[in-house]
Amino acid sequence: MSDNTSHDTRPDGGVPGDVVNREQQTDYLQTEINILKPSTPYMRDHLKVIWTGFTVWIFTTFGPVTATVLAPDIMTSTMPVLGFPWHYFGIAIGGPGGSLLLAAWYARKRDQLDEKYGIDHSAPVTDPGGQTTAADGGEEA
């Protein structure tokens, strides 16, 4: 068997049930890992979440300070109610706070993905391999 055999070479899945089926027949040990070329339905979904999060993260982390360079007058004006200068608030509270919210969002998204693909982390795993399906699709899920 060639080492990068994948059951799924189509760029996108059909109906969701189909995708889940194909995922369950995927043998990860036979699936090439390249962050730029996700080769299973699950990894495609997962990487979509990862890249979305990462893009937003770049904005929450470096956005406020960059905006301060671009529009110093607006950014250094004082916020109503709280009384912070906008740039100070955006950097000191927006940066860490943004990452915290993003982290919670990502962890939830991953849980939803697990649910979609019928993966359960709560049950203790006794099968030492952690792989349940044969690579050649011998079992239908």
Partner: peptide
């Protein structure tokens, strides 16, 4: 081993990717 790190399927607690691969 790298591939095993990306499988969404749960693996046993005290196991490493290396052991999974060796077993397979």
């Amino acid at each position: 081993m790298v591939r095993q790190c990306h499988s969404p399927r749960p693996m046993a607690q005290d196991r490493t990717a290396e052991e999974v691969v060796a077993r397979r």
